[in-house]
């Protein structure tokens, strides 16, 4: 089965190799934080999860527009893959964030703009997936789920910029100047790794979807005799 060794599996394997290195450095080599202590190490999965989730949904926006523009099933499949992987990453993001919040802020959750817009992002894109499963006819499903995805995307820049526009409990983005240089390396390694793993997962999910869409499109098979068991 040479078919199985496609480019995306190499991307995935590379991502897994880098995540092992990045996590090792993040947990055992990088220093603890002055005030947060070891808890700060959650950053090395939390920030990469956030970045890759936001990039997934940005890709979803592009794929949704391309799907409407070209009417090609391939884009519909890519869009679905992007939404599903983005939702998985956002769900993980919220749980990691909640754990980090309990340790530093003292609460599991608060209706702060960053947390609220992130939860809304997860709910909106889950809604698009739900919409997809409700529409039977392929063309209508592709059209309306792409439109829903484009509308849901409005929340994605909000998740990123809300902490700069409004007051929040969540801190604003850090930069290399506000982060100890020894902490930057594991953060960057895991950011690249999460992105590669996300691309890998989207590619696999899109192939599953494309196969499903093509099977759906194929002429009805001859009715089979009902097997008696």
């Amino acid at each position: 089965m040479i078919e199985r060794l496609k480019w995306h599996h190499f991307v995935g394997l590379l991502g897994l190799a880098i995540v092992v290195a990045g996590t090792w450095i993040g947990l055992f080599v990088a220093p603890a934080e002055r005030h947060m202590g070891d808890v700060m190490r959650i950053m090395y999965v939390h920030v990469p999860s956030a970045w890759s989730a936001l990039l997934c949904f940005t890709f979803v926006f592009v794929a949704a527009v391309a799907s409407l523009w070209t009417s090609r099933k391939r884009w519909d499949a890519y869009m679905t893959g992007g939404i599903e992987v983005g939702c998985v990453l956002t769900a993980l993001l919220l749980v990691q964030g909640s754990i980090w919040a309990r340790a530093t802020w003292g609460v599991w959750w608060d209706w702060d703009v960053r947390l609220t817009t992130s939860l809304v992002m997860l709910l909106l894109f889950c809604g698009v997936l739900a919409l997809r499963s409700f529409i039977e006819e392929a063309n209508r499903r592709a059209t309306w789920s792409a439109i829903a995805a484009i509308v849901a995307f409005v929340d994605v820049p909000l998740v990123y910029f809300c902490v700069r526009w409004w007051r929040s409990l969540h801190q604003i983005q850090s930069s290399p100047e506000t982060v100890n240089s020894a902490m930057v390396l594991p953060l960057r390694l895991n950011a690249v790794a999460f992105l590669l793993i996300a691309i890998w997962m989207i590619a696999i999910r899109a192939r599953i979807e494309l196969a499903r869409l093509q099977a759906e499109d194929a002429p009805e098979p001859e009715p089979l005799a009902i097997e008696e068991r």
Binding site: T104, W105, M183
Partner: peptide, 18 residues
């Protein structure tokens, strides 16, 4: 009755001076 600590975006090693 609900006191939350707001951490900023500075991440420093223990030996670094603030």
């Amino acid at each position: 009755e609900r006191l939350m600590v707001k951490h900023d975006n500075e991440y420093r090693a223990p030996e670094e001076e603030d």
